[in-house]
Amino acid sequence: MTTLATRRQAAPGGSTPSRPARSGASSVGRPGFAWALPATIFFALFALVPLAAVAVLSFTSWSGLGDPEFVGLENWETLVSDPVMVKSLWLSLLFIVLGVVTQTPLSILLGVWAAGNQRNRAVLSAIYFIPLLLSSAAISVLWRALLDPNFGIPGQLSWLFGDGNLLGTQSGAIGVLIFVGMWQFTPFHTLIYQGAAKGIPNVLYQAASIDGAGMVRQFFSITLPQLRNTAITSIILMVVGGLTTFETVLILTNGGPGTDTTITAFYMYQEAFQSFDFGVGSAIALVLVVVATLISLVVVKVSGYDKMNSSLEGL
């Protein structure tokens, strides 16, 4: 369902040529480009111009006061030799991989399950989606309170959590961040998979069960391949989301212990808005954009998404 809609939306020019062009009637009463102009200018001003500006600012030194000063490659040299920056990139990669690995199987399982048409599933999915509606700030503050070493859940379940100071060690802090990310974003990815699973033609399952395929076989031979396009969309969103995780790190660990959870997006904030080194901050921001784009391109290439026309091929 979702993939069909995507494909249609991805071809903006497509709707016009496919409609028979009747002389006169079709060009009369069509809106001009002026209708799109206000939104386009507004968006360019706050997204595209800044994107270009961030590239320029990465070659300047600016502390927030006065005007940025051109310093050539200085910021880039600083970054390349900065151990915290290098570490932050590895941590970001770890975050992305752990996020994808934990959220994808769970959301496929839940999404396929929720796509069934029993009534209780609708009620349950209504509860599943609640974390999706809450702000990252509220979720992080909530979990920080729940995991408080003295007054939180670990204190009460010490047989499970030991001394309870989960955020005090690197592995504990990363585990908490990954878990909270899972708690927050699995509902969203579940929703995408649910939509896609509902769109799988029933005739495929009918044919398979006539051929004697059991449920497990059907899941691996029909459901999973059919969810391929959706999985790619979902994984790209997880990659970009993981790379730009910010509120949870700021509120739950503040990058710590030490710099053990200082992922690149958080390091950018620290450099720019806590050390007031906006030039270096801009350079890190540019790294983020490039890395996000590269990873997405790799996912698309490796999966062959760009060559694929339809998940309904052969039907």
């Binding site: 111009v49 800044p50 994107l51 961030v54």
Partner: peptide, 11 residues
Amino acid sequence: AIPAQAVIVPV
């Protein structure tokens, strides 16, 4: 595809 973090300094 543009994350808000990417443009926060110029904004």
